[in-house]
């Protein structure tokens, strides 16, 4: 079969066009990847002057690019869950946090994080019981699954883990309260406007160096920001 013969100039032009398209596609892909960010869930002020923040931590988020990673979901005003760690809060407001913990626990790398700090009354309520220190020892309990730690606000709340052999253990998120969980509630005050980073101090990045890679270093999983406005 006789093919269409292109001139030398046309072939060079096509080659250049193809190369430029490839480079453009690469730049688009890299820029798109770098610009990817989890959504920010805004928690507005209620008439009482305080707000409610509802979150859950799951052993595997089950969605997104890393479904097997441990991470957080945050509930918006409509009750929908969003896999994110970016939360917008009003300034100078009491934030009542309800956190559903669905992950199993372990020993802490540094037991100092078993102490509750920065919350109203210096306590967190684990399934209704006020605690100022949460036992991290897996020999006598389930250990600590994660910690909610906001260094600039002095907040640290250790979250008592669920037994890994619990019936109806949630293997993949988003989980629901019919599954094995602990309910942790506490209140903190936001203070002035600012962006406050927060992280987990349990090295829960399973399979990563020192347990601190992967989800521990990624927004939307175990690291995030409180945007106080």
């Amino acid at each position: 079969m006789k093919g269409v013969r292109l001139s030398k100039g046309a072939r060079a032009g096509a080659l250049l066009f193809g190369f430029a398209a490839l480079i453009g596609l690469l730049i688009f892909g890299v820029a798109g990847y770098l610009r990817t960010s989890p959504p920010t869930v805004s928690v507005g002020a209620s008439s009482s002057g305080s707000v409610n923040l509802v979150m859950q931590t799951d052993g595997a988020v089950g969605v997104g690019p890393h479904p097997s990673w441990v991470g957080y979901f945050v509930q918006d005003a409509s009750g929908a869950w969003h896999q994110t760690t970016l939360i917008q809060l009003p300034q100078n407001t009491d934030v009542h946090v309800t956190l559903y913990e669905y992950d199993s626990g372990g020993n802490l790398r540094n037991s100092v994080w078993s102490q509750v700090a920065g919350t109203t009354g210096g306590v967190a309520y684990i399934n209704g019981a006020a605690e100022s220190v949460v036992n991290p020892n897996t020999n006598t309990g389930n250990g600590i699954a994660h910690t909610f730690n906001v260094p600039a606000l002095g907040i640290n709340v250790p979250m008592y883990g669920v037994s890994g052999s619990a019936k109806n253990f949630c293997n993949t998120g988003p989980c629901n309260t019919s599954q094995a969980h602990n309910t942790i509630t506490f209140t903190f005050h936001t203070g002035g406007a600012g962006t406050y980073r927060w992280q987990c101090f349990v090295p829960c990045g399973l399979g990563y160096l020192e347990g601190n890679g992967g989800p521990m270093q990624s927004l939307g999983y175990m690291a995030g920001f409180l945007k106080v406005v």
Partner: peptide, 28 residues
């Protein structure tokens, strides 16, 4: 900090990891 001090390992100049994986205690 008295209650949390009880949970800390005995004071040592270094603390050796347990290499027990994610969440592993560093003190055993």
């Amino acid at each position: 900090n008295a209650s949390v001090t009880k949970l800390l390992p005995k004071y040592s100049l270094t603390y050796t990891p347990s290499y027990s994986g994610a969440g592993g205690g560093y003190y055993n």
